[in-house]
């Protein structure tokens, strides 16, 4: 029973991490139909901001966390301003390839100016410890991650439901032109979408780095691939779908890890992506999505 609870918490925290990343992807996609492959680089940039702060300024360790989140947010907004705005009205495929280009560009800038090898980054000691809940010893980072995910998602919901810009973002997902006819500035909506995606990526980055203890230029790649899977599972562009998809993927991974015999464990990612392919073909609207009619704003 303890083992089961421990693994459940593990699944929840991993799923939460994927959900944070997937929500960021989904929010940008829903507003401007951009598949942001460079999302993973936000994690790396946040991480390197921590590394460089330690190198040059040596601030207290807890101060690194807001630095990471802020830099991820700022980077997301910069990506939009510099790279994605010129291709905003181009077909979605162009945006996707641009995002790929940005991703390679950022990775290699990090390689050129820092190093290919991983660099150590400290996170507060208490994040690495364990705590007791009842008679159960659990890693602090997992509990924290679960709680923070819940808080972040609540915050996102409040933003989307209670603020003018949030309403505009939800409406823009279906009909951007009419939103602009209401006098809402397109740039503001898009910037906010990117900022939110960067914020969520920054939060996820803190946890990813606290687990790894180091940063490297390509560290964002695997998490963002997972976030993609989560988005596809839930139906691309659907926020609820991204959330559910992230949690489902987290649980599935932990489950497969526990159940799969070691000889085929290496093929786990192949199974996951095969599942992605099947869902795309059989149920492109995702596991929780509704079918869209031709002519709705959709691909």
């Amino acid at each position: 029973m303890d083992y089961f609870l421990q693994q459940s918490l593990n699944a929840l925290s991993v799923g939460g991490e994927y959900a944070l990343l997937a929500l960021g992807l989904a929010i940008v996609f829903s507003v401007i139909r951009l598949v942001n492959f460079a999302h993973g680089e936000l994690i790396a940039l946040g991480g390197y901001a921590m590394y460089l702060s330690v190198l040059f300024a040596a601030p207290p360790v807890y101060a690194l966390i807001p630095i990471c989140i802020f830099v991820a947010m700022l980077s997301a907004v910069c990506f939009e301003r510099v790279a994605f705005r010129p291709v905003r009205n181009a077909p979605p495929t162009t945006g996707l390839l641009t995002a790929f280009g940005v991703s390679i560009l950022v990775q290699n800038i990090l390689v050129i100016f820092v190093a290919t090898r991983p660099k150590p980054v400290p996170t507060p000691d208490w994040m690495g410890g364990t705590m007791s809940i009842g008679d159960l010893d659990v890693p602090v980072v997992q509990v924290l991650e679960t709680i923070v995910t819940v808080v972040a998602i609540t915050g996102l919901l409040l933003l989307l439901r209670k603020t003018q810009i949030g309403l505009a973002m939800r409406a823009a997902a279906k009909d951007f032109v009419t939103v602009r006819m209401m006098g809402v500035r397109a740039n503001r909506v898009i910037m906010t979408a990117f900022a939110v995606s960067g914020l969520l990526a920054g939060i996820a980055a803190v946890f990813i780095i606290s687990r790894r203890g180091a940063v490297d230029p390509f560290m964002g790649f695997i998490p963002v691939l997972k976030a993609f899977v989560a988005c596809v599972l839930g139906g691309f562009g659907s926020l609820a779908g991204a959330l559910v998809g992230g949690l489902v993927l987290g649980c599935a991974e932990v489950f497969l890890q526990v159940v799969l015999p070691s000889q085929v464990a290496g093929f786990r990612d192949a199974f996951v992506f095969l599942m992605v392919g099947l869902i795309l073909v059989m149920k492109p609207e995702g596991l929780v999505g509704k079918k869209v009619e031709l002519g709705d704003k959709d691909e």
Partner: peptide, 8 residues
Amino acid sequence: LAVEDIVR
């Protein structure tokens, strides 16, 4: 003017 400025 941009779409969003007309209504203003």
